[in-house]
Design a protein around this nucleic acid. Structure first.
Lengths: 218, 218
DNA sequence: GGGATAATGAACGGACTAGTTAGTTCTCTA
DNA sequence: TAGAGAACTAACTAGTCCGTTCATTATCCC
């Protein structure tokens, strides 16, 4: 018999596990809401895709709307965490802003569900987002970061244009979000798949060039 | 008694008018779908807001889905018509592209319903758009126009960068669409109303500068 | 003016869906 | 180890929503 390795806790196999059940509901609900929209999402459908029942959704979240808000909150928490991990302070301003744009691009590329949720929330005039005290308290770390890079660039003379950090963030987001959010209608009309792997590097470069050109224009 | 003037045909006041009824349903349905999304829109609600009944919606359009497709088709027909009215061929390349960007900006600004419909259609993976033979036949005149301007700019040396016309159109659209489509979540998080009249000219200029800088970068 | 047809309305059916009720079983702690 | 409360389930309810049925009225054309 081989020496017993310390196996990384192979799931205590509890029959009842509140946090696990909650997490599973949230995961499935994220997919369902992102796929179907708020009105299109079905509570029964979410329940069927978990190993639990509809009653548990009401038990843990209270209702469809509160579940949706929980999904939104989790999604925003995810991107805020990602933003906090960005480290470009050691780069010169041009390289830093370029890198930031690329990281934003990559992050949107790998989180299409988040973008769909944001689209859906905008259809509803962001009413849930506005009501969520949890959400509108924390502000985005990305803005502070951009502000510092812009400041350094202006001081060093690398950036010729004075730009507001929120506006620059908007500019970067607009490109990244559009490419993912509108890929279906855009693809149908112009017969060009904005998210095809073959074009990925092309658009990544295009975004970075666009931002740098704007900031360094003569 | 005054001489009888030839009054400009004060509405024949037909009790029954197929085209008028159809048009009214379509108008109300556009608002309802843009406001509520496809699943959220209520056929009864649309009927109540017209001077006709639900029966007529089924009589003229066949069903909720076909009505939605009719709404989409009409919306796209509208922007295509607007694109055809653009005339910038007499301007030098830089002014022409600048003007085109501004016109696109203005058009999106005044058609938020269209943008909402496009967002909604993207949530549904553009499945209706793809199925509508009516829609995917006609291509956008804007692309031809952009291609001609880019060509002139490259020839004259005004534009240093070679860009694909569809990609440039995407760049312009991304900015314009994001500003309208995502204004609610963006406003809630960054406390900045992208569509406030005070900022309108600011963003209009920002877009034009961005495009020109990109095309003319050293 | 009369017959054919297009347009219209009120009310209903059946499927679906958010949320609830009432009761059971597991798990932790004293 | 017993009791309490947390976690869980199946079946149900009340209401909603798309689409239809059936009857009626206006309009057109000869």
């Amino acid at each position: 018999m081989p020496a017993p390795k310390t196996v990384p806790a192979p799931e205590p196999r509890r029959q009842r596990d509140a946090t696990q059940t909650r997490k599973e509901i949230l995961e499935v609900a994220t997919r369902e809401f992102a796929d179907q929209g708020y009105a299109g999402a079905r509570v029964d459908q979410i329940a069927d895709q978990t190993r639990t029942t509809k009653r548990m959704i009401y038990y843990y979240f209270g209702g469809k709307e509160q579940l949706y808000v929980a999904v939104l909150e989790q999604a925003y928490a995810g991107i805020r965490a990602a933003e906090q991990r960005i480290d470009v302070e050691h780069l010169d301003p041009v390289s830093a802003i370029r890198r930031l744009a690329e990281l934003t691009f990559d992050h949107h590329e790998s989180n299409p569900d988040f973008i769909r949720l944001v689209s859906i929330e905008n259809i509803h005039h962001a009413e849930h987002l506005k009501r969520s005290t949890h959400l509108n308290r924390l502000n985005m770390p990305a803005i502070e970061l951009i502000a510092r890079i812009l400041d350094r660039g202006r001081t060093s003379g690398a950036f010729t244009r004075s730009v507001n950090a929120v506006d620059l963030h908007m500019m970067i987001s607009a490109f990244c979000v559009f490419r993912i959010a509108n890929r279906h209608t855009f693809g149908a009309i112009f017969d060009r798949d904005l998210t095809s792997p073959a074009l990925r590097e092309h658009y990544r470069e295009m975004l970075a060039d666009m931002i740098v050109s704007y900031l360094t224009a003569a």
